[in-house]
Design a protein around this nucleic acid. Structure first.
Lengths: 220, 220
DNA sequence: ATCCGCCTCCGCCGCACGGGGGAGACGGAT
DNA sequence: ATCCGTCTCCCCCGTGCGGCGGAGGCGGAT
């Protein structure tokens, strides 16, 4: 490292913010702020011209917001810079939008100067991402979805009943379920009735809903 | 910062890895490796005794793996250290498990020394998380789930029909839907029929399935 | 040998459901 | 003034569905 400095472009509609960031970053060894932009459109052209290593991109900007600017930069440039999206609010929607747009990192404006510097260094040298507490939410959300809220009745279902519930959740009628399982229609009905009783569902629709909401089957 | 050094504990079953990490980290200003552990159980007791700021935890270890060790540390200690999980493989399952266990960060063993150092500094100074490319997957997964696979019929549903579909997906019968919307049963039936036609569903169950799988309503 | 859980089937019955029509009222679009 | 989409409601009809009870076979547990 530190052979050639990390070249950074700042994109923010407020001059003061840009100045503050520039002061912080220019004071650092191996980091050089090479350009600024006040709008999303300007950011795109500046980046296209200067080809920086890292872009600090504000989300809220006139003309084109940071998200779209990020999309455009990543879509139109070969070997694009790593883009760190900067925002004031820890708004989930922005985080996800930024990630979807292809941002390499995400940073809050209230982040400490150290965090800012490390963020720039980090995204510059690796394919790593930097994150504020928002990731906790993302991760927790994902984690919460994984082990499922534990369906209490799932364990009580017999193997055959589980099969039937899966087929019910696929939208099959009793007759179709019977055909698929190579059993008589009466048998299918019996299993369905058992599933309804064990899931506490009033009808097959509620049973299917329970199957989805409990994670017994995934929407995918 | 740099007032008091960041105190780090290394947990990895291979001595060579521990040594390598120690060499890298000890060379850094403001970072001090204060302890090592070769097993998950050992990691728990060492951390309990030394109270470090950061723990670099290998996932694959004898007796207790890194994930469980992380869980135990976070569950039993007040003011626990920030734990960075280190692994060789970019295995998604490990990432999610680690996050679920409460790890503050995630790092690949093939990460550059710089990344390692910055990871330690980062988790030590803020509530920030550090990430390798695996986050891309996580984020992409989340992003992919957000805008939904675009339900083509959703736009074709009228406001009332959308209401009805939501109530259908809640497990209500036609009569109940009518009551909830303060309309006659016949009207509810009409709307239901329209929903079935537009979603291409054969019966209400299939319509509800479509609502779930298309993201029209969320399992949560 | 006995019990119990699971799977397999059988009837009967009531009803909500879904298909196929038609119809009136309101509002916005042109 | 006319059309069209939406919401509202009505009829009939067939049937799949769900509730009820009963039955036989088969395997494991004790």
């Amino acid at each position: 490292m530190s052979g050639i400095p990390v070249r950074v472009v700042l994109a923010d509609d407020e001059r003061m913010v840009r100045t503050a960031l520039r002061v912080i970053l220019d004071a650092e060894e191996g980091i050089e702020v090479v350009g600024e932009a006040a709008t999303g459109a300007e950011a795109v052209s500046v980046v296209r011209e200067l080809r920086p290593d890292v872009v600090l991109m504000d989300v809220r900007m006139p003309e084109i917001d940071g998200i779209r600017a990020t999309e455009q930069i990543l879509a139109t440039l070969a070997d694009p810079p790593r883009i760190v999206v900067v925002t004031t609010f820890e708004n989930d929607a922005y985080v996800y939008e930024a990630l979807r747009a292809g941002a390499a990192g995400f940073l809050l404006k209230r982040a400490a100067a150290e965090e800012l510097v490390q963020a720039v260094r980090l995204v510059a040298c690796g394919d790593s991402l930097l994150y504020p507490a928002a990731v906790r939410t993302l991760a927790a959300e994902h984690a919460a979805r994984r082990p499922a809220p534990a369906p209490p009745w799932a364990a009580r279902l017999t193997g055959r009943e589980a099969d039937v519930l899966r087929l019910m959740a696929a939208g099959l009628t009793n007759a179709e379920i019977a055909g698929r399982l190579s059993v008589g229609p009466a048998t299918a009905k019996t299993h369905v009735a058992a599933v309804l009783a064990k899931t506490g569902a009033r009808d097959r629709t509620q049973a299917v809903i329970a199957a989805y909401t409990s994670g017994f089957i995934s929407p995918a």
